[in-house]
Amino acid sequence: MRVAPPIVLTDKEQTELTRLSCSRRTSVRLALRARIVLLVARGLPTRRSPHSRASSRGKWRERYRQAGTASIERDLPCGAPAVKVAVARLVELTKQSKPKAATHCWSTRKMAAELGVDPSAVW
Rank of each mutant, 00 (worst) to 15 (best):
L38G: 05
R47D: 12
P45T: 05
L76Y: 10
R48H: 04
R65E: 11
I72N: 05
H104M: 04
L44G: 02
K59I: 04
Q96Y: 10
K95A: 12
Q96A: 09
R53H: 10
V87N: 06
L39M: 06
A101S: 13
A41I: 03
D75W: 05
S52R: 15
P99E: 07
R53Q: 05
G58R: 03
S52W: 10
P50D: 04
I36F: 02
A41M: 00
S71W: 01
A80M: 12
R65G: 12
T108C: 08
A70E: 15
R74L: 09
R33S: 07
A112F: 02
A67W: 05
R61D: 09
P81A: 11
L76T: 13
R89Y: 01
R74H: 11
S97V: 09
R61L: 04
A82V: 13
H51K: 01
R109N: 12
E73C: 13
V83Y: 01
Q66Y: 04
R109K: 14
P99Q: 11
A101R: 14
P99V: 08
D118G: 00
A41P: 01
A86I: 02
M111W: 01
G58Q: 06
L38W: 04
P119N: 05
R48G: 00
T46Q: 05
S49W: 00
P81M: 04
S97H: 13
A67S: 15
Y64Q: 07
T94W: 07
M111Q: 09
A41H: 02
V87R: 14
L32W: 02
W60F: 14
G116Q: 06
S56M: 07
V85S: 06
K84N: 08
S56L: 11
A101F: 02
L115N: 09
V37E: 03
R35C: 03
A67I: 01
A70D: 14
R33M: 05
V37D: 04
A88W: 00
V40A: 07
E62T: 14
A113H: 09
V91E: 14
S55A: 15
A112P: 09
V91G: 05
E92N: 12
G116T: 10
T94V: 13
A102Q: 14
K98E: 08
T69E: 13
S52Y: 07
E73T: 12
Q66R: 15
S52Q: 10
